[in-house]
Amino acid sequence: MNIYAVQTIYRSEMKRFFRTIMQSLISPVISTSLYFIVFGAAIGSRIQEVEGVSYGAFIVPGLIMLSVMTQATANASFGIYFPKFTGTIYELLSAPVNFLEIVLGYVGAAATKALFIGVIILITAFFFVDLQIAHPMAMIAFLLMTCLSFALLGFIIGIWAGNFEQLQLIPLLVITPLVFLGGSFYSISMLPGIWQTIAMFNPVVYLVSGFRWAFFGSADVSIGISLAAIALFTAACLAAIWWIFRTGWRIRQ
């Protein structure tokens, strides 16, 4: 294990994050505050309760998930795409590192950044709503798993992307819709019949549901299924990355 290489990549990526710390943290705080004002106060005042929780509190887990997923994906995809863009990838390919070390460095940093932002949003939420966390350990575990799995997905996107447009494409076209349709701001049980069935094919439903369970002790799908779904998703991403490095797809000729 080339532990120095992992540290070097991780630190260098984190440095980029801290260089733009204000943008990195202020924007999620502002957008979260806006969500609370619009959904929590304006719309939420007309919704009594969802599954026994005030609407303002109900949207907190979904809101955190929304930011964490998009941030993890965006950070990881940019992290590995940028060396491809500048050409510095040659160094990564000629260094004594294996795929696991590269992934640990880039994905680890992207997941850490997403975690930071998730925690910031959670702290912000405490200012707006009365929030209790039923299962704190499970909440942390779900948060970590989501950061990690979506950072892995972002890493794949970054390797696949041939230009900056493609880098934005998947997050815009796939992740954002999946998150919005994944019950971030509502319970799946609020959907009309057929849509409930369709929603079950959306992996984000399981993440949001599991995360919400950690907060309120109740969820759309059982916690076991949620855990299995996120484990499956993480494993699929890892397998894809392993295949990418084995075949050199899009990185090594």
Partner: peptide
């Protein structure tokens, strides 16, 4: 092929760590 926003020292030090 260099990262334009990095400083000279950090860029060279990064290479050392990577190896």
């Amino acid at each position: 092929n260099l990262e334009p926003f990095e400083t000279v020292f950090n860029s060279v030090s990064f290479s050392r760590g990577l190896f």
